[in-house]
Design a protein around this nucleic acid. Structure first.
Lengths: 145, 145
DNA sequence: AGTTAATAGTTTAGCGCTAAACTTTCTGTG
DNA sequence: CACAGAAAGTTTAGCGCTAAACTATTAACT
């Protein structure tokens, strides 16, 4: 048994998988750092960006675009509404979402920092590697539907 | 402002980032599926694999190898010990971890299925792409320390 | 119009994870 | 030897996420 497990631990495909999981965890936590200072998480910021991109968007659409459940959106909005970043406007059964002034300010201030951070991390790849990376991700993306 | 945001939404580097985050979420949830049937999560299974790989390993080492906090390991072990999959053996201030019979059985039964699943997902990449992917991940891995 | 379906949102229980404060045990140095 | 500090584990508060059951509104069909 032991030898089987040790053999397994040298399998390049499995090693790639574990590295993938590990790298993502690191990447995401790196991304979170600068946002913590503003008392807004990366997830909340992404949500804010959705609303900034399309004012009046509803929660369902947000959930679909961010690939999360609508329950999750509800929870984040609860907190963000309390923080005065965003507003729900009930229209029948749907909620239309709008940025408050404070929310708009935060997006304006932080978007460049956020983007800079992403680019800084991805800048370790060459043009060619970035192209390869995109193509690989697209493949996964298509496969996993 | 709107035009700036819309311009941003076409930036290839940012698009790559968002795709990366999205793809990982999908990949991880795919990986979880077959494990759910056995009442063991992927994380618990990975932990089980650590113990199988090195019987008598301690929690701290597990935490380091899995890139998680030791508090997290404590929590998982609590549940897994209740399920009778693993045993703690206190030795001074450290806990030595051992698989129970049930735990060993689960590893034996499930390891091939788990590995098959990983390989199936990664098999959409060509040899060349897998090589590229590994090299890209290694770069991130080194950068993020 | 009245009943059935689907759709939007909320709630709740629970897993996964962290950070930070807290025991307990082990060094190491004067 | 004693006492400071490091190291291993535990606890707790809290965020991020899901699934599933729930409410409320709208659509659709006869």
């Amino acid at each position: 048994m032991v030898s089987l497990i040790q053999e397994r631990s040298r399998d390049p495909v499995l090693l790639t998988w574990y590295r993938f999981v590990r790298v993502l965890r690191k990447l995401v936590s790196q991304m979170d750092e600068p946002i913590k200072d503003l008392n807004v998480s990366r997830y909340q910021f992404d949500l804010l960006m959705q609303v900034a991109f399309e004012e009046g968007i509803n929660q369902q659409t947000c959930a679909q675009r961010m690939n999360v459940t609508k329950g999750n959106i509800t929870q984040h909005l609860d907190r963000m509404e309390k923080q005065g970043l965003v507003q729900r406007q009930k229209q029948g059964r749907t909620n239309c979402l709008y940025l408050t002034e404070k929310g708009t300010e935060l997006v304006d201030d932080f978007m460049p920092i956020h983007d800079q951070r992403v680019k800084e991390i991805l800048s370790i790849l060459t043009q060619e590697e970035l192209r390869q990376f995109q193509s690989i991700l697209r493949k996964f993306d298509r496969k996993l539907d």
